[in-house]
Design a protein around this nucleic acid. Sequence first.
DNA 1: CGGCTTTGACCGGCGC
DNA 2: GCGCCGGTCAAAGCCG
Length: 352
Amino acid sequence: MERKQEAMEMENMMIGTTTSSFSDQIASSTNYPLSSIFDMPFEADQKGSSLGFMDLLGIQDLCPSIFDFLQQPPSSVPPPPHQPPPPTSSVPPPSLTETSEVLNFPATPNSSSISSSSTEATNDEQQTKAILEQDQEDQEKTKKQLKPNNNNKQNKNQKRQRQPRFAFMTKSEVDHLEDGYRWRKYGQKAVKNSPFPRSYYRCTSATCGVKKRVERSCDDPTIVVTTYEGQHTHPSPVMPRGGTTGIQPDSGSFGTSSATSSFVMPIHITTQTHRYQQQRQQQQSPYFYNLPPPLNFSTASSSSTSTSSASPTFLQAAERRFCTSSSSNSSLLRDHGLLQDIVPSDMRKEDH
DNA sequence: CGGCTTTGACCGGCGC
DNA sequence: GCGCCGGTCAAAGCCG
């Protein structure tokens, strides 16, 4: 147990970058209250660590349009996830691998701030912790599945390739939360050491291989853990607001398409993300302290319950921040974005 | 009737 | 080699 805990904390620091935008995708897609957001490392694509929160933040900085989108009065359906290009296929960021390795750093004091050392160990944080632990298990398994015998398996029709995963916790009474996409349940399994089953969903779009797993936290049954795997290759079938803020997939441009809500996160975002992380690593900036309280998104989702809290949300806070950097393009990369607000200026100095 | 869920079976990886 | 486990398949059933 103790060991597990250690590993978990280690993992916290390895949360990683799957792809720059995965958390963003989810964050922007979810209208329900989030307790935590984090990327899941995924060794298949790149040994990586994810930034989780910061990842999200950085991306937000780069994609204000998304948050502009979110800022609009919520319709009955949450904004659809936007999607960066499938990291495994279309746009394998060359730098990603490098940086990911860099980011695969061992636990730092900061890591504990994420999982447990916060002065105020709120319930949410505990949940986050729990979730991280869970994800670590998951990740380990993923690693196990990926690592072994390339020689062996690849022959067999290239072993099923795993996509980067991204998990988050949601406080909700309903298991399957609306996220703007349509999902088909294809399996359900009992979860070891948990009274709650895990459900497996697949995006109903034929060409879209996105999957998600939904399970309840055994620690807190009110917490739903949703793990997304893969990235949508199509616009959300549910366009809450007429799809006005879509970002062209594969275009890398933002906020211009009216045809889709998805977007492609430019590769460089990842590097920017890494910059955040490096900063964090180097300076051990306890950015978690700076984060708004629990990620409770108030919601107008159709789901009956999805919501319990209407407190100022992290997303809203993020919006405020990121909407200031409009007209995004690559130049945004120079912008500190949320970093300006979350990381004290003196800590940002090293940013060249 | 199409789309979805349910659920038992199956498969592959891993640890012992 | 065996058993466990996570993940997936696919037939059957349900529902609008």
